[in-house]
Design a protein around this nucleic acid. Structure first.
Length: 274
DNA sequence: GACATTTGACCCTT
DNA sequence: AAGGGTCAAATGTC
């Protein structure tokens, strides 16, 4: 994906923001609370688009190209040789990653193990997993699991890349940076929270993970805003306890679209070191 | 038979 | 060149 695509995605995000704005106007939410927020979102997209357009001017910093000779169809038993280089763009560490410490290696995704390595200086081997839907849905999410040396009953799990498979739709709280709206029927309030990406290679501790598992992404909240919700919307049922899309007048409002754009944007910013 | 795991080899990044 | 990430044949499990 090139930078022009980044701009396309950002522009799409801006369009979705406009749609959201129109829908919120229909809801008659307090404009003095909604409009500044929407203005911020829209402004952020505009700024990001402008920055991306500047980046296009420096073609050196493109992503690893994928149009190289595809996986050639060597029928020989063993591995390809020097004549057929590249596995298709191997990357290391630059990818967006998120490291957690967990008692269990299980999570809400389905993983397939594709390798295990003894790591130099490490007591325990590292296992490599990719999303089960890598082939059928081209999901690029991978994770590395290694038993913790300090706490052998715990596992250090490094998530690399994000799920693009359908499974991921149900678990948008896992995105690294997102806006999330928590509806509280008891208080008539919605809490709009902006979660930032956790620092790369930061290790989360158990108790932190416990807290965040009840909320959303493992990042920290960098801003929040209370919004009053009209009573007619309070009896809506969440699709899942941790994911919520609303249906207004039959048109589905997918907040995660906007959220995913921001997440995507942040990944590119880190890639381009903007 | 289909799918998952194991494991040694290959090759990229640093 | 070392270390680490991925591939893919062999093997295991259901």
């Amino acid at each position: 994906m090139g930078e022009c695509s980044v701009i396309d995605v950002l522009q799409r995000g801006q369009e979705w923001t406009d749609e959201l704005k129109a829908l919120l106007v229909q809801l008659k939410l307090p404009s003095d609370q909604v409009e500044p927020l929407l203005g911020n979102i829209s402004g952020a997209f505009s700024e990001a688009i402008a920055m991306s357009q500047n980046i296009v001017a420096s073609p050196d910093q493109t992503l690893p190209s994928t149009d190289e000779n595809d996986m050639d169809t060597i029928s020989s038993k063993k591995r390809r040789t020097q004549a057929t280089p590249k596995f298709g763009g191997r990357k290391r560490a630059n990818n967006s990653c998120n490291k957690v410490l967990s008692k269990s290696i299980d999570d809400e995704y389905q993983w397939r193990k594709y390798g295990q390595k003894e790591i130099f200086g490490a007591k325990y081997p590292r296992s490599y997993f990719r999303c089960t839907h890598k082939n059928d849905q081209n999901c690029q999410a991978t994770r590395q699991v290694q038993q913790s040396e300090k706490q052998p009953d715990m596992y250090e799990i490094t998530y690399i890349g994000e799920h693009t498979c359908k499974e991921a739709k149900k678990h948008c709280q896992k995105q690294e940076a997102s806006y999330m709206i928590n509806f509280n029927p008891n208080t008539n309030n919605a809490l709009i929270q902006h979660f930032s990406s956790p620092p790369l290679s930061s290790i989360k501790h158990e108790q932190e993970e416990e807290v965040m598992s009840n909320q959303t992404s493992p990042g920290s909240i960098i801003s929040h805003e209370q919004v009053n919700i009209p009573s007619e919307f309070l009896d809506m049922e969440p699709i899942a306890s941790d994911s919520f899309s609303m249906d207004f007048d039959g048109s589905s409002l997918e907040l995660e679209n906007i959220s995913s754009i921001f997440s995507f944007d942040q990944q590119y910013c880190s890639l381009f070191q903007v």
